[in-house]
Design a protein around this nucleic acid. Structure first.
Lengths: 336, 336
DNA sequence: TTTAGCACTCTCATTGTTTGATTGCTAACA
DNA sequence: TGTTAGCAATCAAACAATGAGAGTGCTAAA
């Protein structure tokens, strides 16, 4: 357990380092209002904190930098989570009131807003197929050999896809398909669409494989592949001193371009409302130099996926967590 | 006009530099089969070529590097445009034969294939709204206050969007909308959808503004905003020595993330089948350190937009142009 | 017209030097 | 006992000096 003065020193070092990206010296800390001690005293405290693992040095005669343990302690015990201004609250409220036609647009708006306010790269992903059920499925004829399938899910999402056939198809057939698919799929989980279903429908409907197979295949494809990823402020981090290194920059670009990494990053465990992963705490090795903060994106208690930000370990945790808490609450209060 | 030997020297320098990214010395060139002269002779020729503007030096005692004029001469006069192997031809053919449901998928496939073979970043953009006409427009009811509009264009593209209303809407109304919109819009250019049309429809149909306005607005939005951009191999260039510079790397990322820049880049003039823009020849100042090569993406003579690659000025023009010529031809031969 | 030879130029890697920031430690102080 | 002044030690960063190596331009001879 850290005593009061150690907490103050640690907090001051984290906040100073977050601001300046420069190792913090004992001398600098003596200028802080609530640390009225000589630099020698501060130095002793810093040496203690370092011994306990909360601080690090970049070389023997450098100032101190928070370790991951230091950041973790700061996040868990020291930070303010109401670090949000009236103007920011106003701005967020305005943005979230935008009228949208598709519920996904709201995800985009939230993502953009968070990135604008925090100045970090913000990512979002739609809900997994396993959490959604089919509310309705509709087939529309677009030509003799082309139909469109439209799926409405319980989360309020609409997915559509085009299916082409090798042979002509009649209005009557489309009607039957409509009826049969709905009968079989209504209120079923999205990922029910699979081989056994295909077989069943072919037997039941007496339609040729040539009709059913392309439909099932295409729907399967769109459900599996089309998990939308939203990305905003990709280049926001480029001006940070961490990104003066080519390696870090390229590494970062590779990470956020890799859909799998982003999906995994956003799908990680959700013990709390706001989840903070600092450096090595991230499951993915690639993320060891970054911190990630995520929250479940719910609107009126419907699961719409996850929103998260990524930034350097030297991140303004206080600001990010404050903004996320507020936006998360506001989103959930909305009715759609 | 360059004499035979000067051409050989220029060609050798371009090709050597394209391969190695190192300034080319006179000594190195003497090792080329068709340049059986001493280094002193080559040096004289290089001095001449430099005086004429085809070559540059990075410093007084360095080897030579092609200037933009040098690249231009190489592209116009010296390069082979059948630099494509049997394996590559085979690979391309296979890829382009993939069965697709939506014509845009073909653009994606072509883009990916080009990037794979050339190892450069490849971009594509769909056809502009001004070049397409509406073949059919369909409205489907998805709920009491929600419909979907589906537009089929003459290029074979399908665009769809969801529209929500503040008041309930009937099946009957949707039918009327269907009829009226088709009557008015069939075979009209895509960008006809605008304010005067809105007024006309409101008068004609006696429907409240509350019904027509959201429809027009949403359709307008999707037509204007949704010009799809395809991007493949974004990180392909990162390993090139040019990208050892942070500035170049960040600059590049910024360029290809900026939809406007990419659109402008791909929409530039089309004097020839294959268009080559070297460094400063690009309209956009941001592209001055890169070369861009584009071609009109046509399938069965339907305009499907533009495909282009971007890479360093030190680009393998021969390979890229050869591959593009072949793919362009193959695409156009397809019937959709 | 071509080439051998040589002085000249410039980059790049290496090494040494200086400066300044910061620490840890010791001894004195309250 | 906790706090602080003072000081030697450490290290990064900036800068200068040096030398090797690669390449050129020019001249004179073949």
């Amino acid at each position: 357990m850290l005593d009061q003065r150690k907490k103050k020193v640690l907090q001051a070092i984290v906040e100073e380092y977050v601001n300046t990206a420069e190792p913090v010296s004992s001398n600098l800390l003596t200028k802080k209002e609530d640390l009225n001690y000589s630099s020698a005293t501060i130095r002793n405290e810093m040496a203690n904190l370092e011994k306990a693992g909360y601080l690090e040095k970049t070389h023997t005669s450098s100032g101190r930098v928070p370790s991951e343990k230091g950041y973790r302690y700061y996040v868990d015990e020291l930070l303010r989570d109401d670090n949000i201004s009236i103007e920011e609250i106003k701005y967020i409220s305005e943005k979230l009131e935008t009228k949208v036609n598709e519920i996904e647009d709201l995800t985009q708006i939230a993502t953009t807003t968070i990135s604008e306010i925090t100045h970090y790269t913000t990512l979002a992903i739609g809900p997994g197929t396993d959490t959604q059920t089919i509310e309705e499925i509709k087939f529309v004829m677009l030509g003799e050999r082309m139909i469109m399938a439209i799926i409405l899910t319980n989360a309020g999402m609409v997915k559509e896809t085009i299916i082409k056939f090798d042979e002509d198809i009649t209005e009557k057939q489309v009607e039957t398909i409509n009826y049969m698919f709905n009968k079989k799929l209504k209120n079923q989980p999205l990922d029910i669409i699979d081989a056994p279903l295909e077989e069943y429908l072919i037997n039941e409907m007496k339609y040729s494989v040539k009709v059913i197979k392309p439909i099932i295949e295409q729907i399967k494809k769109i459900i599996q592949e089309e998990r939308q990823i939203y990305l905003e402020g990709k280049n926001r981090l480029f001006d940070l001193p961490e990104f003066n290194s080519l390696e870090v920059t390229k590494n970062f670009i590779n990470i956020i371009d890799e859909k799998d990494v982003v999906a995994d990053m956003l799908d990680s465990g959700f013990a709390k409302d706001i989840n903070v992963y600092i450096g090595d705490e991230n499951e993915k090795q690639e993320l060891k130099d970054f911190s990630v903060i995520t929250f479940k994106h719910r609107v009126g208690n419907k699961d719409l996926g996850t929103i998260g930000i990524i930034g350097p370990k030297r991140m303004d945790y206080s600001k990010v967590i404050s903004v996320m808490k507020y936006i998360s609450k506001k989103l959930n209060e909305k009715d759609m």
